[in-house]
Design a protein around this nucleic acid. Structure first.
Lengths: 346, 346
DNA sequence: TTGAAAGCGGTACCAT
DNA sequence: ATGGTACCGCTTTCAA
């Protein structure tokens, strides 16, 4: 490509004005040791010639590039894209950049992404663990080297830092309770991989509701997707197993956007009618669940808020000189939106 | 935060091995002027101590940070998130990073994003114009300064460079023709802002189909959304106007994911039944349009491929020394997926 | 074959 | 108030 024309530098300004580089630098940074007159002249000149400090040079000096790295499951996923949107709303306003990497639920990619991001010298990390992740030593190492991390959604307690999650226990509790109160009792649960924090929390809510209603917890009703429902096959297998059970479950709680959508499509393909043969309550952040067939009862997470809060906490962590002694786990409320798919038909 | 511990640098290696910085640098870059023995020793040491060249320093030297900037309408949008996914598949593999900015269909944000990205010294840009954009002088300036750009989806011919789009003319043509052949003749079209390339192309396909069937083109059947259907209100207004017409349209072609989903939700709210009162064919990249009520006939764009092709072309542009004399406009085929929402009910 | 030294564009300390 | 200068980590002549 054609050579990038040098944008105007400190040196250019210094030469043009017969000042030293140091003076110009200080003038532009509004140092007290520069006379107002000089400051004015320098700033005017800089303004006129559209001076922009060279980011690389600044970064090279005091390692801080106003950028944060994000590790996310997958971009094309309603939940995550809302999260990203929330993060962007903060980073845009605070003049940070966020560099997005997808784990695609693979540990190997997660590690590679992490390497990449640290090499990029990001100032901090926003991380949601992949479905495959068990050991988090790779994050520990990075964190100990001084790069602040905030975990969101899929979190870990093994690293002492901020966390932002939605109230997963409550979400599944509400969903399950709603189904129970509508006369469903054989409630299946298709969820992500066993190791994830969200999986465990959601299972707790599920069990709590059953217990409260004195319904026996049947472990066979819980199906895990080792890859978080990345492929439809994973979900189809789970559904096949559930449909083969006797008695067959009469309701289903699906634990993520992907799993929910896949489940709807698969049940449709199999001509299982919802909710008469099986009712559904699904975690989903789709913008218009009322246009599904049937209208879908959803557990809606404040994805945008999660992203926003996580980004805010991280930037605070980055910009604060001394690390805080106490970290917060922010738990945002979820909302059960009742629609046709979970209501008894007479 | 705690000071980031210095990762090992050239200087460290040089001192440790009693060599000069220059020699180490050359050895690591496999220069011909270094003896194999020295090379070996240096590389071993570097490997063992996990030497990673400092990106900022490299960038400062020869402006190339292996990063590309993306301007996109909005992340939470099935079409765009698939596009991003396609881009990521390339950048990940080629060890580039992509920095995403959302225009949110606002010219002002588009400009600010552009400024931000150039300040970040990205090596190239992947751009889809915002719905508000008319003059593209801001891009011209950047492009003339030597930063390669590839336009995708919403493109412009005013800058000589590669373009990647889907076959918009054909998409709407197919959709319109399909409706006509199914007995619908008063076909409305809700689309994005007038200025966008996609809007114009889609309108051509629509007109072509009408003309071919000798149907009168009624300008009042075409409703523009100045903000690309960002808000549901915009779409609702268009629909209200259409419903108030006499005779009312009997079919509708919606020109984007957002518009399509909004239209479905609004018509549902208004208790207009699809397709008996009005049929719908919608541009959409939703992963499971068969779970909509009714199953939605879609014009499906190869969003992932668009992203992939655009990223590939851009990286080629970045890495090639001499700019090509001829640029290509890659037009990827779209697919009409016929489902219930566009079929005559008897 | 190896190394000294001059940048790249800023920042910051120390003189003047 | 202003300027000289060393340095951040790496690349690249040019000498040795």
């Amino acid at each position: 490509m054609k050579l990038r024309p040098q944008t105007v530098t400190l040196k250019d300004i210094a030469r043009a004005m017969g000042l030293s580089i140091a003076t110009v630098s200080k003038a532009l940074r509004d140092s007290h040791e520069i006379s107002p007159a000089t400051k004015q002249r320098v700033c005017d000149y800089a303004e006129k010639h559209k001076y922009r400090p060279n980011l690389m040079a600044q970064m090279l000096r005091h390692k801080n590039g106003r950028s944060i790295g994000v590790i996310i499951g997958a971009i094309p996923n309603n939940f995550f894209s809302d999260v990203l949107n929330g993060m962007e709303s903060v980073t845009f306003q605070k003049d940070y950049h966020f560099i997005i990497t997808q784990s695609l639920e693979s540990l190997q990619r997660e590690k590679k992404n992490l390497e990449h991001l640290t090499w990029r010298a990001v100032d901090g990390l926003l991380v949601s663990l992949s479905a495959e992740t068990q050991s988090i030593d790779h994050f520990k190492k990075v964190h100990e080297s001084g790069i602040p991390i905030v975990f969101y959604d899929r979190v870990t307690n093994e690293i002492k830092t901020h966390q932002v999650v939605s109230d997963n226990v409550d979400g599944t509790y509400k969903g399950t309770m709603h189904l129970l109160e509508n006369g469903f009792s054989r409630i299946a649960h298709i969820t992500s991989s066993k190791e994830l924090s969200i999986t465990q929390e959601r299972l707790i809510g599920y069990k709590n509701a059953l217990e409260e209603k004195n319904i026996f917890f049947n472990n066979d009703y819980v199906k895990y997707c080792a890859h978080g429902g990345k492929d439809r096959d994973e979900v189809e297998e789970a559904i096949d197993q559930l449909l083969a059970m006797k008695p067959m479950p009469d309701a289903l709680i699906t634990a993520s956007d992907r799993i929910t959508i896949s489940a709807l499509a698969i049940l449709k393909k199999k001509n299982i009618s919802i909710p008469s043969q099986i009712a559904i309550v699904g975690y989903s952040n789709f913008s218009a669940p009322e246009v599904f067939q049937p209208e879908l009862t959803t557990i809606h997470q404040p994805a945008f808020e999660i992203g926003r809060a996580a980004a805010e906490l991280l930037i605070k962590l980055i910009e604060t000189k001394r690390p805080p002694t106490k970290f917060e786990k922010r738990i945002l409320p979820v909302e059960l939106q009742v629609r046709e798919s979970s209501l008894r038909v007479r």
